[in-house]
Design a protein around this nucleic acid. Structure first.
Lengths: 116, 116
DNA sequence: CTAACAGTTAAAGTTAACTCTAAGTCAAGA
DNA sequence: TCTTGACTTAGAGTTAACTTTAACTGTTAG
Protein backbone atom coordinates (compact mmCIF):
# COMPACT_ATOMS: atom_id res chain seq x y z
CA UNK A 1 0.00 0.00 0.00
CA UNK A 2 1.23 3.48 -0.65
CA UNK A 3 -1.71 5.69 0.33
CA UNK A 4 -2.68 6.33 3.91
CA UNK A 5 -5.60 8.09 5.59
CA UNK A 6 -4.68 10.50 8.34
CA UNK A 7 -5.51 7.81 10.90
CA UNK A 8 -3.23 5.31 9.20
CA UNK A 9 -0.44 7.82 8.75
CA UNK A 10 -0.84 8.83 12.38
CA UNK A 11 -0.41 5.21 13.42
CA UNK A 12 2.52 4.75 11.09
CA UNK A 13 4.57 7.72 12.28
CA UNK A 14 3.32 7.81 15.86
CA UNK A 15 1.99 11.35 15.82
CA UNK A 16 -1.64 12.33 16.41
CA UNK A 17 -3.84 13.44 13.51
CA UNK A 18 -3.94 16.84 15.24
CA UNK A 19 -0.18 17.07 15.02
CA UNK A 20 -0.13 15.98 11.39
CA UNK A 21 -2.65 18.68 10.47
CA UNK A 22 -0.70 21.17 12.52
CA UNK A 23 2.56 20.35 10.76
CA UNK A 24 0.82 20.73 7.43
CA UNK A 25 -0.67 24.08 8.43
CA UNK A 26 2.82 25.21 9.42
CA UNK A 27 4.05 24.36 5.95
CA UNK A 28 6.14 21.34 6.89
CA UNK A 29 4.23 18.94 4.68
CA UNK A 30 3.59 20.69 1.35
CA UNK A 31 2.92 17.54 -0.64
CA UNK A 32 0.02 15.94 1.17
CA UNK A 33 -2.83 15.51 -1.31
CA UNK A 34 -6.58 15.27 -0.85
CA UNK A 35 -9.07 12.80 -2.30
CA UNK A 36 -12.28 13.79 -4.09
CA UNK A 37 -13.99 14.23 -0.74
CA UNK A 38 -11.33 16.61 0.54
CA UNK A 39 -9.65 14.04 2.77
CA UNK A 40 -5.90 13.87 3.19
CA UNK A 41 -4.00 11.11 1.49
CA UNK A 42 -0.48 10.48 2.71
CA UNK A 43 2.06 8.95 0.35
CA UNK A 44 5.18 7.04 1.32
CA UNK A 45 7.16 10.15 0.51
CA UNK A 46 5.13 12.08 3.07
CA UNK A 47 5.83 9.46 5.73
CA UNK A 48 9.54 9.58 4.90
CA UNK A 49 9.45 13.31 5.26
CA UNK A 50 7.65 13.09 8.59
CA UNK A 51 10.30 10.62 9.71
CA UNK A 52 13.02 13.12 8.97
CA UNK A 53 11.06 15.91 10.63
CA UNK A 54 10.91 13.75 13.75
CA UNK A 55 14.65 13.25 13.53
CA UNK A 56 15.34 16.97 13.29
CA UNK A 57 12.83 17.80 15.96
CA UNK A 58 14.09 15.03 18.23
CA UNK A 59 17.54 16.54 18.04
CA UNK A 60 16.32 19.95 19.11
CA UNK A 61 15.61 21.75 15.86
CA UNK A 62 12.57 24.05 16.08
CA UNK A 63 9.66 23.62 13.72
CA UNK A 64 10.49 27.03 12.33
CA UNK A 65 13.96 25.91 11.35
CA UNK A 66 12.66 22.61 10.09
CA UNK A 67 10.35 24.56 7.83
CA UNK A 68 13.28 26.63 6.57
CA UNK A 69 15.09 23.42 5.77
CA UNK A 70 12.02 21.98 4.06
CA UNK A 71 11.57 25.14 2.03
CA UNK A 72 15.15 24.84 0.78
CA UNK A 73 14.47 21.22 0.03
CA UNK A 74 11.50 22.20 -2.12
CA UNK A 75 13.78 24.42 -4.17
CA UNK A 76 15.84 21.40 -5.14
CA UNK A 77 19.38 21.39 -6.44
CA UNK A 78 19.57 25.17 -6.50
CA UNK A 79 19.59 25.30 -2.72
CA UNK A 80 21.56 22.17 -2.11
CA UNK A 81 24.50 24.02 -0.58
CA UNK A 82 22.46 26.03 1.89
CA UNK A 83 20.46 22.99 2.84
CA UNK A 84 23.50 20.86 3.47
CA UNK A 85 25.14 23.67 5.40
CA UNK A 86 22.14 23.64 7.71
CA UNK A 87 22.47 19.92 8.19
CA UNK A 88 26.19 20.09 8.84
CA UNK A 89 25.67 22.76 11.43
CA UNK A 90 22.94 20.69 12.96
CA UNK A 91 25.22 17.68 12.96
CA UNK A 92 27.68 19.61 15.13
CA UNK A 93 24.90 20.55 17.47
CA UNK A 94 23.88 16.91 17.86
CA UNK A 95 27.48 15.87 18.53
CA UNK A 96 27.76 18.57 21.15
CA UNK A 97 24.46 17.54 22.67
CA UNK A 98 25.54 13.90 22.93
CA UNK A 99 28.65 15.05 24.75
CA UNK A 100 26.58 17.10 27.15
CA UNK A 101 24.21 14.19 27.74
CA UNK A 102 27.14 11.97 28.56
CA UNK A 103 28.47 14.52 31.03
CA UNK A 104 25.06 14.77 32.67
CA UNK A 105 24.81 10.99 32.75
CA UNK A 106 28.03 10.89 34.75
CA UNK A 107 26.65 13.48 37.15
CA UNK A 108 23.49 11.48 37.73
CA UNK A 109 25.48 8.29 38.18
CA UNK A 110 27.78 10.01 40.65
CA UNK A 111 24.75 11.18 42.62
CA UNK A 112 23.34 7.65 42.62
CA UNK A 113 26.64 6.28 43.88
CA UNK A 114 26.81 8.89 46.59
CA UNK A 115 24.38 6.85 48.67
CA UNK A 116 23.42 9.76 50.88
CA UNK B 1 33.74 34.04 48.53
CA UNK B 2 30.71 32.00 49.39
CA UNK B 3 27.81 34.47 49.15
CA UNK B 4 26.47 35.73 45.84
CA UNK B 5 23.94 38.37 44.87
CA UNK B 6 21.35 37.29 42.34
CA UNK B 7 23.41 38.98 39.61
CA UNK B 8 26.53 37.08 40.62
CA UNK B 9 24.71 33.78 40.96
CA UNK B 10 23.10 34.41 37.60
CA UNK B 11 26.52 34.89 36.05
CA UNK B 12 27.91 31.86 37.85
CA UNK B 13 25.23 29.39 36.77
CA UNK B 14 24.35 31.00 33.44
CA UNK B 15 20.68 31.52 34.12
CA UNK B 16 18.92 34.90 34.19
CA UNK B 17 17.86 36.45 37.50
CA UNK B 18 14.28 36.03 36.24
CA UNK B 19 14.83 32.30 35.95
CA UNK B 20 16.45 32.05 39.37
CA UNK B 21 13.50 33.81 40.99
CA UNK B 22 11.12 31.63 39.00
CA UNK B 23 12.84 28.44 40.16
CA UNK B 24 12.64 29.65 43.71
CA UNK B 25 8.95 30.51 43.38
CA UNK B 26 8.38 27.00 42.05
CA UNK B 27 9.99 25.56 45.14
CA UNK B 28 13.17 24.30 43.54
CA UNK B 29 15.47 26.40 45.69
CA UNK B 30 14.17 26.25 49.26
CA UNK B 31 17.40 27.33 50.92
CA UNK B 32 18.11 30.71 49.37
CA UNK B 33 18.35 33.26 52.17
CA UNK B 34 17.79 37.02 52.24
CA UNK B 35 19.92 39.78 53.73
CA UNK B 36 18.61 42.47 56.09
CA UNK B 37 17.33 44.45 53.12
CA UNK B 38 15.35 41.51 51.77
CA UNK B 39 17.83 40.70 49.00
CA UNK B 40 18.64 37.16 48.01
CA UNK B 41 21.96 35.69 49.04
CA UNK B 42 23.08 32.54 47.24
CA UNK B 43 25.42 30.13 48.99
CA UNK B 44 27.72 27.64 47.34
CA UNK B 45 25.21 24.94 48.23
CA UNK B 46 22.55 26.79 46.26
CA UNK B 47 24.83 27.00 43.23
CA UNK B 48 25.56 23.28 43.49
CA UNK B 49 21.87 22.61 43.63
CA UNK B 50 21.22 24.80 40.61
CA UNK B 51 23.96 22.90 38.81
CA UNK B 52 22.17 19.64 39.42
CA UNK B 53 18.83 21.14 38.44
CA UNK B 54 20.42 22.12 35.13
CA UNK B 55 21.66 18.58 34.74
CA UNK B 56 18.22 17.08 35.32
CA UNK B 57 16.54 19.67 33.18
CA UNK B 58 19.11 19.30 30.42
CA UNK B 59 18.33 15.61 30.28
CA UNK B 60 14.64 16.19 29.84
CA UNK B 61 13.25 16.11 33.35
CA UNK B 62 10.40 18.59 33.87
CA UNK B 63 10.62 21.22 36.58
CA UNK B 64 7.68 19.52 38.25
CA UNK B 65 9.59 16.27 38.55
CA UNK B 66 12.73 18.09 39.58
CA UNK B 67 10.74 19.65 42.37
CA UNK B 68 9.51 16.21 43.43
CA UNK B 69 13.09 15.04 43.54
CA UNK B 70 14.16 18.12 45.49
CA UNK B 71 11.32 17.64 47.96
CA UNK B 72 12.49 14.10 48.61
CA UNK B 73 15.99 15.42 49.00
CA UNK B 74 14.80 17.83 51.68
CA UNK B 75 13.41 14.90 53.64
CA UNK B 76 16.89 13.43 53.92
CA UNK B 77 17.80 9.84 54.63
CA UNK B 78 14.18 8.82 55.14
CA UNK B 79 13.48 9.26 51.43
CA UNK B 80 16.80 8.09 50.14
CA UNK B 81 15.35 5.02 48.45
CA UNK B 82 12.61 6.88 46.58
CA UNK B 83 15.02 9.56 45.58
CA UNK B 84 17.58 7.16 44.24
CA UNK B 85 14.88 5.20 42.43
CA UNK B 86 13.97 8.40 40.61
CA UNK B 87 17.57 8.92 39.64
CA UNK B 88 18.01 5.36 38.46
CA UNK B 89 14.92 5.61 36.33
CA UNK B 90 16.17 8.89 34.97
CA UNK B 91 19.53 7.31 34.23
CA UNK B 92 17.81 4.77 32.00
CA UNK B 93 16.00 7.55 30.24
CA UNK B 94 19.26 9.36 29.55
CA UNK B 95 20.88 6.18 28.21
CA UNK B 96 17.91 5.66 25.94
CA UNK B 97 18.03 9.26 24.82
CA UNK B 98 21.73 9.03 23.96
CA UNK B 99 20.94 5.99 21.83
CA UNK B 100 18.19 7.87 20.05
CA UNK B 101 20.44 10.85 19.47
CA UNK B 102 23.06 8.58 17.93
CA UNK B 103 20.46 7.06 15.63
CA UNK B 104 19.31 10.52 14.57
CA UNK B 105 22.91 11.57 14.07
CA UNK B 106 23.33 8.72 11.60
CA UNK B 107 20.20 9.82 9.78
CA UNK B 108 21.44 13.38 9.45
CA UNK B 109 24.85 12.19 8.31
CA UNK B 110 23.25 9.91 5.76
CA UNK B 111 21.23 12.84 4.42
CA UNK B 112 24.37 14.96 4.22
CA UNK B 113 26.15 12.23 2.29
CA UNK B 114 23.24 11.83 -0.09
CA UNK B 115 24.41 14.89 -2.00
CA UNK B 116 21.08 15.47 -3.65
C1' DC C 1 -32.64 6.47 2.90
C1' DT C 2 -30.42 7.28 6.94
C1' DA C 3 -27.46 6.94 10.79
C1' DA C 4 -22.85 6.48 12.18
C1' DC C 5 -18.33 7.54 11.30
C1' DA C 6 -14.20 9.48 9.82
C1' DG C 7 -12.79 13.12 8.17
C1' DT C 8 -12.78 18.67 7.25
C1' DT C 9 -11.97 23.84 8.85
C1' DA C 10 -11.03 28.04 11.65
C1' DA C 11 -10.24 29.40 15.81
C1' DA C 12 -9.82 28.97 20.74
C1' DG C 13 -7.56 26.69 24.66
C1' DT C 14 -3.61 24.47 27.05
C1' DT C 15 0.96 23.70 29.02
C1' DA C 16 5.69 24.45 30.33
C1' DA C 17 9.00 27.45 31.09
C1' DC C 18 10.20 31.38 31.14
C1' DT C 19 10.28 36.75 30.61
C1' DC C 20 8.82 41.11 31.48
C1' DT C 21 6.35 45.12 33.71
C1' DA C 22 5.03 48.21 37.26
C1' DA C 23 5.42 49.90 41.45
C1' DG C 24 8.07 50.01 45.34
C1' DT C 25 12.46 49.60 48.65
C1' DC C 26 17.05 50.20 50.23
C1' DA C 27 22.10 51.27 50.27
C1' DA C 28 25.71 54.02 48.56
C1' DG C 29 27.95 57.89 46.29
C1' DA C 30 28.04 63.19 44.82
C1' DT D 1 19.76 65.13 50.95
C1' DC D 2 19.13 63.43 46.57
C1' DT D 3 19.63 60.37 43.04
C1' DT D 4 21.09 56.20 41.03
C1' DG D 5 20.96 51.51 40.56
C1' DA D 6 20.27 46.98 41.98
C1' DC D 7 17.23 44.75 44.00
C1' DT D 8 12.07 43.33 45.67
C1' DT D 9 7.01 41.66 44.63
C1' DA D 10 2.69 40.20 42.30
C1' DG D 11 0.98 39.50 38.33
C1' DA D 12 0.70 39.89 33.30
C1' DG D 13 2.63 38.59 28.82
C1' DT D 14 5.20 35.51 25.64
C1' DT D 15 6.50 31.48 22.92
C1' DA D 16 6.50 26.89 20.99
C1' DA D 17 4.10 23.14 20.11
C1' DC D 18 0.51 21.17 20.33
C1' DT D 19 -4.65 19.97 21.50
C1' DT D 20 -9.34 20.67 21.57
C1' DT D 21 -13.83 22.47 20.15
C1' DA D 22 -17.64 23.45 17.19
C1' DA D 23 -19.84 23.18 13.24
C1' DC D 24 -19.94 20.88 9.17
C1' DT D 25 -19.41 17.22 5.13
C1' DG D 26 -18.72 13.12 2.38
C1' DT D 27 -18.68 7.67 2.63
C1' DT D 28 -20.54 3.51 3.90
C1' DA D 29 -23.29 -0.24 6.38
C1' DG D 30 -27.86 -1.62 7.30
Amino acid sequence: MSLYTIAQASEEVDLTPYTLRYYEKEGLLPNVTKDSGGRRKYHDDDLQRIGFIKCLKGTGMSLKQIKEYGDLYEQGKAKFKERNAMLEEHREKILQEIKTQKKYLKMVEAKIEMKI
